[in-house]
Write a protein that binds this DNA or RNA. Structure first.
Lengths: 197, 197, 197, 197
DNA sequence: GATGAATGAGAGTTCATTCAT
DNA sequence: AATGAATGAACTCTCATTCAT
C-alpha cells in the first residue's frame, strides 16, 4: 500500500479555482476575465477587488502548485532512509500530485510563458529545484550501485516528463484508482533507471 | 548508426512558418493576425488572401505535423521485419521527429483545444492512430516474449509521452546531436517495456 | 504698504483640500475618488460619509472660492471712499486672492464645465456678480473723469483676466512677494483704464 | 485697417476637428474615444486606424495650434521695420489668432497637463518661445524709449495673458468683428506697456 | 496579389457608487 | 465613523475580419 503523500490538500481560493477551470478548458489567453467572474459567481470588479490583474491570478495558481509540490516533495523524501526508499517516495509523490492535481499542474506547466516577467523566472527556478531533487536521488542511486542506467540525468528528466504526462491523461474518476496508478507508474519509472531487482 | 527517418523535410509555407514562430512564443490565443502578418512580412489582408482565418493557419500547421509524423511512422515500420526492429524504427522515428520538428510538434500538441470543432476531432483521431501504432508493436512484442512489461498499454503511452517531451526541451543546436539523442532515448524507451536483452 | 484683503483665511476641510491637490494636478475628470481618498488618508466610503458624490466636492470647492472672493471683494470696496480708492482696493483684493489662493481659484475656474447643472448656473451667476463689481467701479471712474479709457467694459474684463492669470503662474514661494506682486499688477491694471496720474 | 495675420488657415483633419469639439465641451479626460468617434462619424477602431491613442490626438491638436501660432507670429514680426510696428504686428497677430482659433487655443492651453510626458515638455518649450517673442519686442521698445513701463517682463506676460483670455470669451460670430477686437485689444495692450503717444 | 481604411465585438481594466458589517 | 466587498457602467484599446481600390 502506497502512503498518502498529500496529507493536506492544496488550498485554492474560489476565484483561483474558477480561473483554473477556465484555463484548463481554454488556456490563459483564451479565457476572459468575464468568464472567470461568471464561473466564480462574481462581477468583473469583484475579481479585481481580490486580484490586481488577470495575470496575478495565474501567478497565484502557479505559486499554489509549485509551493505545494515542493513542500510535498521535500516531506516525501524525509519518509525514507535508504536511497531506494527516498527515490520511491519522491517519485510516488510526484505521481500522486499529478494524478490528484492534474488540472492545476497542467495549467501551471502549459502557461509558463504567459507568466509576467518576474514571476516567470521565479517559477522556472522552482521547477529547476524540483528537477534537482529527482536528479540528485537518481544520481545517488547510481553511485550506490542501486541503479544501473548509463544516462542518469536523462532518466531523471524522463521521470519528470512521465509524471507531468500523468496530469494530461489521468482522471481519478476513471477506471484506475490513484493507488494503482502510483504502483504502475512507479514500476515504469524504476525501469527507466534500471533498478537492480 | 541510426537511419534518417525523415528523408524529406516537412514543407511549411512562409505564412505557416511565421505563424509557427509566433505560436511558439505566445500561443495561438496570445498571437494576433497582425503579429503573424508582420512576422511574415505581409499585410493583414495579405494573410487572408491565403488563409480564410487565423484558425485555418493552425489547422494547416496541425495537418502538416500529423500528416508528416504519420507518414514517417508508417515508413519507419516498413524498414523492419522483426517486431524488435519495427519497434526500434518506430520509436526512433518518433524521437527524431520530435527532435527536429520540436516547435511544430509542441505547438500542435499544446493547441489542440484551440482547433475548431471539426478539425479537432480529425486531429485527435490522427493522434489515436499514431498511438495505436506504438501500442500495437509493444503488445506484439509482449506476446512474442520480447518485452516483459506487465503494463504494455501504459508503457506504450509512456513512450509517446517521452517522445513528445523531447519537443519541449531538446534543441538540435545544443550539445547533444540528434543521433545521440535517438540512441539514448531509445534506450530509455526500451527500458519501459523491459526488453529482454 | 498694501492692506491685507484676506484677514481670515479660506476654511477648507481636509477632504476638499485633498481633492484640490488632486484636481490641480489632474483635473476633475482625471482624478478618481480613490485618489482623493488616498490623498486624504481615508477609505473610499469614508469620503462618501462626508460628501454624497465626487461632484459635490467640486461644488464645495467652488463655493468656498467664490464665497470667499465675493466676501473679500465687498469688504475691500468698503475700505475706500473715493472711486479711485475703491478701484484700488477691489483690484488689490482680486490680485491678492489669486496670488494666495491660486490653486483653488484656478481649479474653480477651469472646472466650471464639470459642475453639475444647477451648481454651474449658480457659480456663473457669482462670477457675473464679481465681474459686475469691477465693471461698475471702472465705469464710475470713467464717468467721474478719473479714467480715460475709451473701452471701459473691455478694460474691466481685461482686469479680471489679468488677475485670474495670476493664479496660473504666480507662486507665493517664488522670488516676488505677494505685496510686490500687488503693487506691480495694480500698476498694470491702472494702465488698462488709463488712469489720470 | 488691420492686416490679416493668418493668410492660410490652420489645417485640422476631421478626427482632430471632432476631438476638438468634444474637448472644448468636456475636456480631455471628460471626453471618451466613443464620443470622438461618434462626432467624427467613425467607429472606434476607425479612430485608432489614424491615431495610436487618445493622447496622440491631443498631441496633434497642440502641435497644430503651436506650430500655427509660432509661424504666424514670426511672419507678423517680418511685416514691421520699427520696433513699434513689430510690436503692433506681433500683438495683433496674437489677438487675431486667439479670436479666430479660440477653441483650439483654449483646449491646447487648458490641457497641457493632459499631454504625455515628452510632448508636454516640447509644448512648454514652444510656449516659452512664443512668450520670448513678446518679451523681446517689449524690452526693445523700452530700451528705445518707446515704452515707459517700469515692469517690461510683467507687461509682456500680461499681454500674453490678455490675448489668451480672448480665446475664452470672444466669439467671432458675436457683436464685435475680429477687426474691431484687434483694434480695441491692441489699445489695451499698448496701455500695459505705457506707450509714448 | 496586395493594401489602406474600416468595423462589430470584445479584451483587460477602472469608474463612481453602495451596503452589510 | 469607518471599511471590506461588491457592482453596473464605462473606460481605452485590440481583436479577427472585410472590402473598395
Amino acid at each position: 500500500m502506497t502512503p498518502n503523500y498529500l496529507p493536506q490538500p492544496l488550498s485554492i481560493d474560489p476565484i483561483c479555482a474558477a480561473a483554473l477551470r477556465c484555463f484548463t478548458v481554454s488556456g490563459f489567453h483564451g479565457t476572459s476575465i468575464r468568464q472567470i467572474a461568471a464561473e466564480a459567481g462574481l462581477s468583473v470588479p469583484g475579481i479585481y477587488h481580490h486580484f490586481p490583474s488577470k495575470a496575478a491570478i495565474l501567478v497565484a495558481l502557479c505559486d499554489i502548485a509549485m509551493d505545494g509540490l515542493l513542500a510535498a516533495s521535500h516531506e516525501s523524501l524525509q519518509r525514507g532512509t535508504t536511497t531506494l526508499e527516498r527515490f520511491e517516495h519522491l517519485v510516488g509523490c510526484l505521481i500522486q500530485f499529478h494524478a490528484e492535481y492534474g488540472d492545476i499542474a497542467f495549467v501551471t506547466y502549459s502557461e509558463i510563458r504567459s507568466l509576467p516577467e518576474g514571476a516567470r523566472e521565479k517559477h522556472l527556478e522552482q521547477r529547476r529545484e524540483e528537477q534537482a531533487l529527482v536528479t540528485e536521488v537518481v544520481e545517488r542511486g547510481v553511485s550506490e550501485g542501486l541503479f544501473t542506467t548509463p544516462h542518469p540525468r536523462e532518466s531523471a528528466r524522463a521521470i519528470s516528463t512521465l509524471c507531468l504526462g500523468v496530469s494530461q491523461w489521468y482522471r481519478p474518476s476513471g477506471p484506475m484508482p490513484v493507488n494503482e496508478l502510483v504502483r504502475v507508474y512507479l514500476d515504469i519509472c524504476k525501469d527507466t533507471v534500471r533498478i537492480v531487482r
